[in-house]
Amino acid sequence: MSIQHFRVALIPFFAAFCLPVFAHPETLVKVKDAEDQLGARVGYIELDLNSGKILESFRPEERFPMMSTFKVLLCGAVLSRVDAGQEQLGRRIHYSQNDLVEYSPVTEKHLTDGMTVRELCSAAITMSDNTAANLLLTTIGGPKELTAFLHNMGDHVTRLDRWEPELNEAIPNDERDTTMPAAMATTLRKLLTGELLTLASRQQLIDWMEADKVAGPLLRSALPAGWFIADKSGAGERGSRGIIAALGPDGKPSRIVVIYTTGSQATMDERNRQIAEIGASLIKHW
């Protein structure tokens, strides 16, 4: 067993022997301040990774656009098919120029040779490549099948209805392509620590998230040296922004954090800054 596999296998073990965790309302004060600064709703939840206990939450059962955070769930569904012998990570998928959609920095470079399922998941999570996500959605049967996968996990809230990039439209009061912070946090925890996926697939999923290259201005910008984070960000229309993450000190994750916002007129930089400040408060009061 590799060191990384050992780390993920012992996530519940280490967490069980940690000192009790206590909620700190100071972080919620910052979440509410972010709402004021952005002029928009902000949803927040913080779960203990081992027990699933909610440590703090704000608007945990209000719907927010998922945006690209759905790509972690998508690759979880792909990995479940791999575990069941219905898919192979090494299978190569070929596609054409007509398949390319807006923001496809990886797939646009491989029109000639195609990409493997493993490479597509890596591109979808680490670079948020939209064509990679659409190609992977095709392998599982489309958005409705991802929703069905989530329902089978016990998540009857999260739903995907459309493809990239239309799913980022974020129309107010439109339930399409949305989740709730509580539902997303619980589902992410199941994917990373539950028995739904094999140990190898859980490790692969967290490795992809740990290698995320496009979430630097968010929670990662607030992390002290030595902290662990595996995350996936999302951005959408109407001032929408979000991030889902597993993080913790001492090089291992111990909490799940989900943050979503929508309806702001603020710039992307300002949305990023507010999420980073929430992260800084979380870490300060850990």
Rank of each mutant, 00 (worst) to 15 (best):
P12M: 14
G141K: 07
Y95P: 04
I171W: 14
A170I: 09
L55H: 08
M180Y: 14
W227D: 00
R271L: 12
H285G: 09
Q4A: 12
L10P: 08
P65N: 04
T198V: 07
I140K: 03
D113Y: 12
Q274K: 12
D113M: 10
T158Q: 01
S104W: 01
A280E: 15
E277N: 11
L192W: 08
E108G: 12
W163G: 09
K232T: 01
N272W: 01
G114A: 05
E61C: 07
K284S: 14
D231F: 03
L223T: 13
L120E: 01
R118E: 15
A84N: 15
D99V: 09
V42L: 13
T179S: 09
R92D: 06
P224T: 06
T179L: 01
V258Y: 01
A9M: 14
V8C: 13
T147H: 07
I206V: 13
G154A: 07
I93W: 03
G52H: 06
A40K: 03
G52W: 05
Y260R: 00
D36R: 15
R220N: 03
H156V: 10
R271Q: 10
G248E: 01
D36Q: 13
V31I: 15
C75F: 05
G216L: 08
H156E: 10
L38K: 06
I244H: 01
L55A: 06
I243T: 04
A123R: 01
A235I: 04
L55Q: 08
Q88L: 11
T126M: 09
F70K: 02
R202Q: 15
G226E: 10
V106F: 07
K30L: 11
T138M: 13
A133D: 00
P165Y: 05
Y44P: 00
E87D: 09
I54S: 08
Q97T: 13
G39W: 08
A133P: 02
M268D: 06
G216C: 08
G85W: 06
L223I: 12
R273L: 13
W227G: 02
I3A: 08
D155L: 01
Q274E: 14
K213C: 12
E270Q: 14
K32T: 09
L55P: 02
L38Q: 06
W163H: 09
E277G: 10
Y44Q: 01
P172N: 09
D250E: 14
N272I: 03
V117N: 03
C75W: 00
E108A: 11
R7Q: 14
